[in-house]
Structure formats: C-alpha cells, structure tokens
Design a protein around this nucleic acid. Structure first.
Lengths: 343, 343
DNA sequence: ACTGCCATCTAGAACGTTCTAGAAGAGGGC
DNA sequence: GCCCTCTTCTAGAACGTTCTAGATGGCAGT
C-alpha cells in the first residue's frame, strides 16, 4: 500500500478533521484555506501543514452551496467539431485567470443540446456559454431569463435582448477571401456553402456581395455543401465534372475544405496549380503541414476571451452595451492559393 | 420580457418554495422529486405541477452534499484527440443509463493532467476514468488510494494493484493488420510507430512478432512517427525517398495515417496501387468517404462500456477480478489496401 | 484604572438537499 | 375497545462549507 494518506476513517477529509488536527476552529481553517484575512502567520502555517498531512481537499460542492457564487461557467460544445474544441481551450485559458471554473457539457448523438444545458443548470453554473447552439432563438431567450447566456458563432436575428452574441464577421471573412483570390487574378470563384449551419448565411452573403463589387456577378456560383469533410468532397466531385471549371473555391470551413482538397488530389486536379482552395476557421487542421490551407482565420482566442468576458460582466452586474460583439477575421495565406493557370 | 417564470424573489427556486406553493412539507417534495416511494398519486401530481409552475430545478450540489453518493464519474480527456472524443461519447452513453453523471475535464496546452484531475476530485467525483493518461504510474497508484481509477488505453506495467486498466489488444491489432497485408501478397511492410504514446510499444511489438512469424524478419522496418498528422507526413516523406520502397505501411493511428495518405497523394504515389496504408483506431476520421482508410478498429463503445462498468463495480464494492480488461480489435478493410503491384 | 482598538480567533446559523424517526389517520380482526 | 398494519405525511438533523457576530487578549493612550 503506497503512502496511504492518513485519512481519518475511510471518508474524505473535511475542514473539521483539519481543525481537530491543528487544534483550531473550523472557521479558522476555512479562513486559511481561502487565503482570507484574519489568521496569524504561524497558525496559518500550522493549519496548512495539518491539511497537507491528511490530504485535505476543499469540496467545491459544499463551498458553492454556502456562498451563493459558484463562479462556474457552463460551456456547451460539440465533441466532433475542432472549431469548438479549440474554443474550449481558449475558454479555459480566459476563465481560470479570472477566477472562474469551467464546466463542460458535450453535445453528442445520444445527448442533445437540451440535455447538455439541463446538466449545466443543475450544476449551478452562473452563466452559459453556448458554442454554435442550434436550438431555436426563443429557447435561448427563455434560458436567458434564468441565467446570462452567451451565444458564440451563432447569430440571432432579431437578437433577443438578453442573449449576448459573440461572433466573427463572417461576411467580412468571405469578402477577404474573394478579394485575395481576385487580387491573384481569379474571376471564376465558386463557393461551397454551409447550408443552415451557424454563420453559413453570412458567409454566403459576403461572397455574393464581394463578387458583385468586383463586377463578377456572372461568376457567382454557390454549391450546396455543409460542415463536414464529406460535404466538401461531394461538392468537389461535382465541381470536377464542370466545364469550364472555376479556378478557385471558397469552402464553408476547414473541414469542408479538406474534403475538397482530397477529392481534387484524387481526381488529379492540382492545387493550387489548376484550382485554388480557401477554407474558413483556421482550426489546427488547416495549420498542419500536409494540408497547409489558405483560410480565413477566426480569432479563436479573442472569441473565447470576449465570450468569457461578457458572461463575467453580466454576472458582475456591469451595464454591458447591447448588441453583438463582432470580431474581425483575417486571411491566412498558405499553400493552397496561387494565381490561376494562364491558358 | 418573455414568459418570466414565477421565481419567488430573484433567486433560484428551492424545494421550500415548491413545498410552500403545493402546501406540503419539504421532505415530501423531495420524495416526489426523486420519484421515491411514499407519496400518494394525487399529491405527487400537485407537487409536480407546483414545481413546473415556478420552474424548479433540483440542485445537484446540495443533493450530493447530503447523500454521500455523488454518482458522478470524472473523465479526463484530450480535446485534440478524436479517439478520446469518440470515447467520451461512448462514456456518456454507458454512464447515463446506469444512473451516473459524467463530469468532463479536458487536458489542453494550458491545462495539464494534474490540474484536470484536481478539478474532478474537488468536484467530488466518485471515480476517475482517465483516457490515455501520461502521468507516471506511481501518480496513478497514489490517486487510486483515494478513489477508484480506470486507465483507458494506457497499459501499466507492472500494474499497480488498485488501478483498473481497460485497453485494446494493441499487439493483436498490429498482428491482424500484418496478416491482412501478407494475405494480400505484401512482404515489405513498414511500421510508422507512435514513439512513447500509450499503446505504441505494444503495436510495435505486435508488428515485429507478426513479421517474424511470417518469415519476414528481414523486412521489419520501423520508422519514428507519432500521433499527429504531421508525424505521419514526416515519416511518409522519408518513405517516398526510399528505394526500394515498401509496398505497405502500418501507421500508428488514423491521424498519422491520414498524414501518410496525403503525403503520398502529393508525391504522386498512388494508394493502394503503389502502396497500401493501414491505420489504427477506426475513429470517425477513417470512416469519411474521402479517406476511406483500412484500419484496425478499436471497439470504442465496448471500451467505454467496460471502463464505466469497472468504475461502477468498484463503487458498488463488488469484488472485481484483478488484471486488465483487454478488448480484441478487428480489422476494417476499406479502400487503402490492395494486393501489391506486380512488377 | 478605564477605554478603545486591533489582531486573532470562535460559536453557530445558513445554504438546499436527503435521511431517519416517527406522527396521523384509516381500516381490519379479535 | 384494543392492537395491528399500512399508507401518507412531517419535523428536524445532517452533509461540508462560508458568513455574521462576537469573544478574547494585548497594547496604547488618557
């Protein structure tokens, strides 16, 4: 039996056990544990030593029960979306320095958004940060009557007054992608869209208006896509068959773009030689050396930071400005775009 | 203000509020909420109605505090690993029917395993399920003195008595892959390994012994790899340069294999025409139509089920058999393997 | 000697739930 | 009438923490 910690009987050590061992009151141990004012240096040391010896660990449940603040941020995310998991990393990074804990609740095939949110609320989260929520806006508005709600990457229109929205300027991102391609000399630029996914409508619109602004209205070409590799691959197969073929494609997101890339490679269509490809999100996927995808970067750390900041501001009762917080994207040029082939 | 729920003052409704509204005692409401025996049908209905009306939601924190059981399973996973996120889905599916909740704690660049586990323990998880833990075995043994610990996919040798291990027979999986390739007629089969990642040593060993058994000791060829796409791509680039080139590759896992595939495609090496590729894990990645990877399937639902089952058995004080639980893998043949080119 | 103040410490209530023990009332059998 | 039993309900303690209000003692100023 390796280094058994001297737990009193068989249960988890509590403040009372520490207090008994250090010969002080429970309240004083609490003070020391919180690092609060009101204990002398010497007893502080003695208490900490006693706690260490019996392996005491504060019980967040009891702590939360007593102090009305749980300092707990509930985050709902999709296990399958790299964009979400990247955001979660950012949320951890933003929340912990601010003194907030993060409770994760995943959306999975067997576990809908409703269930995910219920679990967070039962856990006494003080605010909810929902990544790309797909429930009806009315449901979000209803939730927001109970607890501050931040919707990340999902635009709500008309915006319910109580729900905060943090998102990327998707239309602007699509515009940047088109501008980049046009500057390289492309004219026939297609867009593989995201259907009803959060952000898809804005990206589509951004693409359309940018094309118009460049006088390329005749070349507007939107293919039905989606947010998975499969969706991208399917759209790409239909592109390959086209004649004439566009010289560039803007995909809904990085996953979709990798599906496109792969199909092109298989079909012997060289990238960026014969056709340029642009993704969206700048997830870790696109940064991988063997994908090396030109993409519109969402500023994931910034989105995470704003979402957390907004939630905390609401909790602190600060008068937060109404309206969405929109983060500008920026194009990251990598290896999948080049001037079009000069026939 | 849309459908404000009639919360008493401004706080979260409690049992006492429901009790007051229904005109019964707090204890009775508790009975009804838990669905326990001891309330008549009519009052049960009345209480539920009252609870519904004021939007009551049980407080798991308080609940846990009182009943020593938290029925909470702590799961540590890596946000970046599809294999882990797939497992998490399985764990949700296995735990909830058994009446256990799942608390997730992610490992990320800014958040080490130590931190992840501390959070779970502070949250009163009754047992820990650690996915591919990389901390020293001694640390796991120490944790196991406080709470049941299940290590998934990480073998421990010598096995600390108190830590349960649930894993795939990695050596057997590698053997199956080699057998398959040999049956197709391959002889020069290389292995891109996983370095020190959990499971890597066993897969390497399985590969080696299988090669020996087929009399292909001379063709044993292990390239240093890793668990990301980049690692696979790097190894594949060195393979492409070899002469003669192996006719088949077994990659450490699916991510690694997709890196290999991509590099081959770029280099104009056809798969499976010139070279066959086998992955490991059968994550959702490999199933994607455009990757269509032959791979060794880990039985993810089964692993999840066993891990959860073991944890629960320990909690119920059942005398669980010592030793690891090893799940057999099975080969899934898809499009990246074929007989070698007949020169 | 009295007062006041500061630093240090403590008792006991509170948080929202579950659990134990038992009360109230309705019937049934003698 | 008495004793059971069964169902339905309730009072109050308990869980581990934090918070409020105060106790204690030392020191300084008058």
């Amino acid at each position: 039996m390796p280094t058994t910690p001297a737990v009193p009987d068989g249960k988890r050590p509590t403040l009372a056990h520490v207090a008994a061992r250090a010969g002080v009151s429970v309240a004083l141990v609490s003070i020391v544990m919180r690092g609060a004012y009101g204990a002398s240096a010497t007893t502080r040391e003695r208490v900490l030593k006693a706690a260490e010896e019996i392996g005491y660990r504060p019980d967040t449940r009891a702590r939360v029960l007593r102090s009305n603040r749980s300092r707990l941020l509930g985050v709902q995310f999709g296990l399958r979306h790299p964009f979400h998991t990247d955001l979660v990393e950012g949320i951890y990074a933003a929340a912990e320095p601010a003194g907030y804990q993060v409770a994760l609740s995943a959306v999975a095939p067997t576990r809908g958004e409703r269930q995910a949110v219920e679990a967070l609320l039962a856990d006494r989260c003080e605010a909810l940060v929902l990544l790309g929520p797909e429930v009806p806006a009315a449901r979000l508005a209803h939730l927001a009557t109970q607890v501050p709600v931040v919707s990340v990457a999902r635009r709500l229109r008309p915006a319910p007054p109580a729900v905060d929205v943090v998102r990327t300027a998707d239309d602007e991102g699509a515009r940047q992608a088109v501008d980049h391609l046009v500057a390289l000399g492309h004219r026939a630029i297609a867009h593989i869209d995201g259907g009803r996914a959060p952000g898809a409508a804005d990206r589509r619109r951004g693409y359309r208006t940018a094309m118009h602004r460049h006088g390329l209205a005749d070349h507007v070409h939107v293919l039905p896509g989606g947010l998975t590799e499969d969706d991208g691959a399917r759209a790409a197969r239909s592109l390959v068959a086209e004649n004439p073929r566009p010289s560039a494609v803007l995909a809904f997101n990085d996953r979709c773009a990798t599906g496109v890339l792969d199909t092109f490679l298989r079909a012997g269509v060289t990238v960026p030689g014969e056709i340029s490809v642009v993704g969206f999100d700048d997830t870790s996927l696109s940064r991988l050396a063997h994908i090396d995808l030109t993409t519109v970067a969402q500023d994931i750390p910034r989105l995470a930071e704003l979402a957390v900041g907004r939630a905390i501001a609401r909790l602190d009762g600060e008068a937060v400005p109404e309206g969405e917080q929109v983060v500008p994207p920026h194009l990251v040029v990598r290896g999948t775009t080049a001037p079009p082939a000069t026939d």
